[in-house]
Amino acid sequence: MGAENQTAFSEFFLLGLSEDTELQPLLFGLFLSIYLVTVLGNLFIILAVSSDPHLHTPMYFFLANLSFVDICFITTMVPKMLVNIQTQSKVISYIGCLTQVYFFMIFVGLDNFLLSLMAYDRFVAICHPLHYTVIMNPQLCGFLVLMSWVIVFWVSLLHILLITRLNFCIDTEIPHFFCELAQVIKLACSDTLINNIFLYMATALLGVFPLSGILFSYSQIGSSLMKMSSAGAKYKAFSTCGSHLSVVSLFYGTALGVCLSPTVIHASQRSSIASVMYTVVTPMLNPFIYSLRNKDVKIALGRLLCRAPSCP
């Protein structure tokens, strides 16, 4: 391989969602609004859960963690995108790109694990209601969240260590608004076999495994609901899963739906749209889904926002 193809470099170029200069102010305003709504919405969920004793349960413990992860998730990508739009620059440093890849892997993995843990919580609550408080005790919940952090931390770190051994070509343009792991690997000039193998393994661990857990939990929930004779009991039990099912459908459905869209759309464009849907839109909508569909959260948010003596 020629020396010119292994030239040391210090930056990548993020092509963003559009190169049309007339669209840049619109994109800046849109993503700034989405970012602020996401941060404020998820922050309100965290404050509501932490301040209301009625929400100190495993389900809302996982929800508060999910809201925190969503804030970090969108912060990993959108601020850099806004800076690049404002400065009319597409540059991201090599270290900055690897940092973005690292934290993106952490928070997307945590999103998957937390959604799976929330499904397991609903499975225990509906299928084993008499043993719920014993099984889903605070120690177990804390341990499950801690183990999720440990797993994604080491998997993400191994990805970064494997990337640092690669040599990159001169053409370092990334057809995304953030540094996506698969796109970064594609830019390498050196052998990426080990990186691709580990990428598939990590996808199975951080994506397929949690999704399988969600599907298994809801298959058991569905089986338990079918055995209930009372329609009211079925509705009451299933209604506790409504918000979580909506979030799961939004998170996994948007990415899969766009990936399976007609092939007339260019692959890189389709991938960028999918990334926007599950990295930006989903974290913004999660607080609305849980607050609008959950009576307890609405009451807690009302108490949080209404502190004046005249409020009920």
Results as ranks from 00 to 15, higher is better:
residue 55 L to P: 00
residue 70 D to V: 07
residue 90 K to T: 15
residue 173 E to L: 10
residue 68 F to W: 13
residue 140 L to D: 00
residue 62 F to C: 09
residue 110 L to A: 05
residue 52 D to A: 14
residue 44 F to E: 09
residue 172 T to M: 14
residue 156 S to T: 01
residue 117 L to Y: 10
residue 114 L to A: 02
residue 168 F to S: 02
residue 153 F to V: 02
residue 123 F to H: 11
residue 150 V to G: 03
residue 144 L to T: 10
residue 135 I to H: 00
residue 84 N to A: 08
residue 28 F to D: 04
residue 106 I to D: 02
residue 73 F to E: 10
residue 158 L to F: 14
residue 168 F to P: 04
residue 80 K to A: 15
residue 86 Q to F: 12
residue 113 F to S: 11
residue 137 N to Q: 03
residue 100 Q to R: 03
residue 169 C to I: 11
residue 75 T to H: 09
residue 152 V to C: 03
residue 140 L to W: 00
residue 131 H to L: 10
residue 76 T to Y: 09
residue 73 F to P: 15
residue 129 P to F: 03
residue 124 V to H: 03
residue 37 V to E: 02
residue 42 N to K: 12
residue 51 S to K: 14
residue 170 I to T: 15
residue 30 L to T: 13
residue 108 V to H: 04
residue 96 G to V: 02
residue 97 C to H: 08
residue 140 L to S: 01
residue 79 P to Q: 09
residue 145 V to H: 08
residue 72 C to I: 08
residue 63 L to I: 00
residue 166 L to R: 04
residue 71 I to T: 07
residue 44 F to N: 04
residue 66 L to S: 09
residue 130 L to E: 15
residue 44 F to P: 10
residue 103 F to E: 03
residue 46 I to L: 11
residue 129 P to T: 05
residue 153 F to A: 02
residue 46 I to A: 07
residue 96 G to W: 04
residue 117 L to S: 02
residue 142 G to H: 06
residue 172 T to N: 11
residue 146 L to W: 11
residue 98 L to T: 00
residue 158 L to D: 13
residue 60 Y to K: 04
residue 132 Y to I: 14
residue 106 I to V: 11
residue 28 F to W: 08
residue 78 V to Y: 03
residue 86 Q to K: 13
residue 158 L to E: 11
residue 83 V to G: 08
residue 32 L to D: 01
residue 172 T to K: 14
residue 45 I to Y: 05
residue 35 Y to D: 14
residue 89 S to E: 07
residue 121 D to Q: 10
residue 119 A to K: 06
residue 93 S to E: 06
residue 85 I to S: 00
residue 107 F to H: 03
residue 139 Q to G: 00
residue 136 M to R: 07
residue 173 E to Q: 14
residue 32 L to V: 06
residue 69 V to N: 09
residue 127 C to Q: 03
residue 73 F to D: 11
residue 79 P to E: 10
residue 105 M to R: 13
residue 152 V to Y: 02
residue 34 I to F: 08
residue 92 I to R: 07
residue 93 S to H: 09
residue 164 T to Y: 14
residue 84 N to S: 06
residue 34 I to P: 03
residue 137 N to Y: 11
residue 160 I to Y: 04
residue 173 E to P: 10
residue 59 M to G: 09
residue 108 V to L: 02
residue 82 L to R: 01
residue 84 N to M: 08
residue 73 F to N: 11
residue 129 P to H: 01
residue 34 I to K: 09
residue 155 V to W: 05
residue 124 V to D: 01
residue 138 P to D: 11
residue 98 L to N: 08
residue 65 N to G: 15
residue 49 V to C: 07
residue 68 F to P: 13
residue 140 L to P: 00
residue 164 T to C: 14
residue 53 P to H: 10
residue 113 F to Q: 06
residue 143 F to M: 07
residue 174 I to G: 11
residue 157 L to S: 12
residue 89 S to V: 06
residue 136 M to E: 07
residue 42 N to C: 06
residue 88 Q to G: 04
residue 81 M to L: 13
residue 29 G to W: 09
residue 127 C to N: 06
residue 41 G to I: 01
residue 29 G to V: 08
residue 149 W to P: 14
residue 45 I to A: 12
residue 81 M to K: 05
residue 47 L to Y: 01
residue 74 I to C: 13
residue 57 T to S: 11
residue 119 A to W: 01
residue 117 L to N: 12
residue 54 H to T: 14
residue 29 G to E: 05
residue 106 I to Q: 06
residue 78 V to Q: 08
residue 69 V to C: 05
residue 111 D to N: 15
residue 128 H to M: 08
residue 93 S to D: 07
residue 82 L to H: 04
residue 123 F to V: 12
residue 116 S to G: 15
